[in-house]
């Protein structure tokens, strides 16, 4: 019983981590007043870029006669996937902030573009490699669960807290930093002002465009890292066609579930992940798998209903989110 529970929780954390990263990126973006629905596209771009980054690093080093290092390979994947996601978000930011294009349409287009970008380059490098694009065992090991001396050996607790790959801890760290940023730093407060009421923020001397650009681009980068989780951890550094499909949208749902709070995001990502994989660990006789698959979405709708009934300002979407700001347009 306790074994099943720990296994379920561990799997829930792993299932929730890419969604958490995607959701954190989107929370940062939406806090600035940009509703970027292109999360899936940016995750796709991050997924392929991270994999190709690691792969190229290994190929280059092996060709030069050196032994590739797992840690550096992981670092390359992290940086390149961040840049790829940020590049996708930059396109979005330019279109919506500078050219004031419709945010919903631009986001949807970014999803389609990113999906094509990921699958195109995945196929291209697959053909070039003559089969699978796959990283070596050194990089695979770098994305495997970490064994902490002593800590990992604590019964139950060690398994629950100290048995994950580094990206899980990285995602939690990002959430903590973001929480601190929104609550305690001047820049974070300014950013929230931009998202709630850009006109007022503008009047107070805050550059709306600069804040929106930065938040959107960095948010996109974090989404890209979430995508890299799919290609480096879920499929262990092998490119699988369409490997992100559907999960970017789950991340968007998670933003609502988390009510735009990074810390609550950590909690609900585990719940969301748990609901996704529950049927594999707990079987209720006679309950079809399709019902289990619906539960995460039902939970999201429930949260939407509860927050809209309570009409709490704190748990609502930033008031300026989805609207482009144009100073002369009043």
């Amino acid at each position: 019983m306790i074994d099943t529970a720990t296994a379920l929780l561990m799997a829930a954390v792993l299932a929730g981590t890419p969604l958490l990263l995607g959701a954190l990126g989107e929370i940062l973006t939406e806090k600035s007043g940009n509703l970027n629905l292109g999360v899936e596209g940016m995750m796709f771009m991050g997924a392929i870029a991270g994999l190709i980054g690691s792969y190229s690093y290994e190929q280059a080093l092996t060709a030069a006669g050196f032994e590739p290092s797992g840690a550096i390979s992981a670092l390359v994947a992290l940086i390149v996937s961040f840049l790829a996601g940020a590049f996708g978000a930059l396109i979005y930011a330019f279109l919506t902030i500078t050219l004031r294009a419709n945010q919903n349409v631009t986001g949807l287009i970014l999803t389609i573009f990113g999906t094509g970008f990921g699958n195109f380059f995945g196929e291209y490098f697959g053909l070039k490699a003559g089969g699978y694009v796959t990283v070596s065992s050194v990089t695979k090991a770098a994305f495997s669960p970490i064994h902490f001396p002593l800590l990992s050996d604590i019964p139950v607790l060690g398994k629950l807290l100290f048995q994950y790959n580094w990206m899980v801890y990285f995602a939690v760290a990002v959430a903590l930093v973001m929480f601190w940023f929104f609550r305690k730093s001047r820049f974070g407060l300014n950013l929230r002002a931009v998202g709630e009421d850009p006109a007022a923020a503008d009047a107070a001397g805050i550059s709306v465009a600069r804040y929106r650009y930065l938040a959107t681009v960095i948010g996109g980068g974090i989404c890209g890292i979430g995508g890299m989780y799919m290609s480096m951890v879920t499929t262990s550094g092998v490119w699988v066609h369409g490997c992100v499909t559907g999960y970017g949208w789950l991340a968007v749902a998670l933003v609502i579930f988390a009510t735009w709070s990074p810390l609550r995001g950590v909690l609900v990502a585990v719940i969301f992940g748990g609901l996704m994989i529950m049927r594999m660990y707990i079987t209720i006789p006679g309950l079809p798998a399709q019902i289990y698959d619906m539960v995460p979405y039902l939970a999201t709708i429930l949260v939407l209903i509860i927050t809209s009934v309570r009409q709490s300002k704190e748990h609502a979407m930033p008031a300026g989110c989805g609207l482009n700001y144009f100073r002369e347009d009043r």
């Binding site: 296994a7 799997a11 792993l14 799919m230 879920t234 092998v238 699988v240 490997c243 499909t245």
Partner: peptide, 28 residues
């Protein structure tokens, strides 16, 4: 769906299975 395939494989391994086979498309 590589994500679900990986999750199902992991759940089977947790149940004590030590050879995994598949009727699904990906290498997950």
């Amino acid at each position: 769906d590589p994500t679900v395939e990986a999750q199902v494989a992991k759940a089977l391994i947790e149940r004590g299975c030590d050879v995994i086979s598949q009727h699904s498309d990906s290498t997950a």
